[in-house]
Design a protein around this nucleic acid. Structure first.
Lengths: 255, 255
DNA sequence: CGGTAACTTGATGTTGGTCAACCTAGGTGG
DNA sequence: CCACCTAGGTTGACCAACATCAAGTTACCG
């Protein structure tokens, strides 16, 4: 149980637990011991380069539910998520919300050169990120073409993921949406070296619903249905066991 | 009436009209006279650099309805659309289709380093593109950091657009979807220096429906409703006049 | 002028939304 | 340690937006 793990470990570290986005500490960003480096845009850097990066980086800590930035905030930083999970969302005038994505360890945040953020970023669990000042980051890219190339790769993956999500939102049924979502989280967990099977769901039903273009009630009903048909089982701490992956894949549609 | 213009001009040029994706001609790619350069990834290049680019570029021509590439085709090229319009779409197993985007002059196609295409690209009208071999293109980027930076900018714009589309697909009503779509096309036309008001719709109702996550009938009904309320008017050749832009913007939602 | 494909319009059906009640678990304070 | 309180989740009854099915109608093309 991985998110719970992170959460409890962080819970013990009281300094971590109490700090927040606004009080990012200038303590050494420990790139040397970074647990997710292989997954991030820092992957192609040499040890020497890493040291250089270390100097322009600050650690940021968020408690569960805390906001990293809001729509309209000046976009002065780029981030690399190292521990925890983040939700990106946008609001319509009347409060309807679309969750445009979830971020997990190794994920990068801050592509785009817009002056202001176009979405809100909220921590789903205690979360830690590496923060780069935009200006430093641009200089970093200039000096490390490898890193820029890697960033381009990350961007194109994000575009591919966005297209998948469009197919899901535009053309899939509620069941297909939920099944696809569970399988996607499982695959992403595997990609970052975590166990793919009991899928951790650090987000609540509301966040899932707003990500899939459904309501809380529909998400709950579909999950209930999958559970009754023994395709999944709910584990304590919001984890979901995928009891019949082939059946779920069939339900997910997706050719 | 711009698309019609392009179409008829192209129609007169019989060589152009008859050529196709597979018979891309090695004729000089006329970067010198490129009408959309300021809009494309080539914008930051100097005259000398442009000449160099010219050499690694091939012109491709597509007739209305012709396929540039299909899902699963090897992705050996990158493209820059110079004339016409293209539709990108993906299919579910049972034939449900999601149109993930439309491309217009100045738009770039071919981010991502995947071996195979993840979507189908079909010309909506007679269309011309600049084609770069992937290998050449990568070398081009290495030598022109400006171009790589520009590509990153393009990628991040595409991500922003994809997020807008997720909000639309996940949380907007049929009316809001159609109004948003018309306004978006208008804005994009303005961006590339065309008249924003009679909006050209080079795509059919089916393509619009598959882009907005609706059916043909619903799109038709909503357009009919907007027309009856005098917010829009249908012009010959598939153009739409935006008679009451503020009202449309109100209908579109979007804060 | 006919033929076809795209579009429109109408009648009916279904998925998922809405509204409301009810559970359950986790956290707090007595 | 237990009772309560609350937020999040589940379940049910009903409803509405949009899909589906089925005719028309228009517009473009030879």
């Amino acid at each position: 149980v991985d998110f719970a793990d992170s959460a409890s470990r962080l819970g013990e570290d009281s300094a971590f637990a109490r700090s927040c986005a606004s009080c990012a500490d200038r303590l050494p960003a420990p790139c040397d011991v970074c647990t997710v480096r292989a997954l991030t845009i820092c992957a192609p850097l040499t040890v020497a380069e890493l040291h250089e990066v270390s100097r322009s980086v600050t650690a940021v800590t968020l408690a569960r539910g805390e906001t990293l930035f809001d729509v309209g905030d000046p976009a002065a930083h780029a981030f690399n998520l190292t521990i925890g999970a983040l939700m990106l969302s946008r609001l319509l005038a009347d409060g309807r919300r679309q969750v445009t994505g979830f971020l997990f360890p190794g994920d990068f945040l801050g592509l785009g050169e817009e002056e202001r953020h176009r979405c809100t970023a909220i921590a789903l669990v205690p979360t830690r990120l590496c923060r780069f000042a935009r200006a430093d980051f641009a200089r970093l890219l200039d000096r490390h073409p490898d890193m820029e190339r890697q960033l381009l790769r990350v961007a194109s993956q994000e575009i591919a993921a966005a297209q998948d999500q469009m197919v899901l939102l535009g053309r899939k049924t509620a069941q297909e949406k939920v099944a696809s979502f569970l399988l996607l989280l499982s695959r992403r967990a595997a990609q970052r070296g975590q166990r793919p099977d009991p899928v951790q769901l650090p987000m609540g039903r509301a966040a899932i619903a707003d990500h899939l273009g459904l309501t809380i009630e529909t998400v709950s009903r579909v999950i209930g249905g999958l559970r009754r048909r023994r395709l999944i089982a709910l584990r304590p701490g919001g984890a979901v066991a995928l009891l019949d992956r082939p059946a779920l894949e069939a339900l997910a549609g997706e050719d």
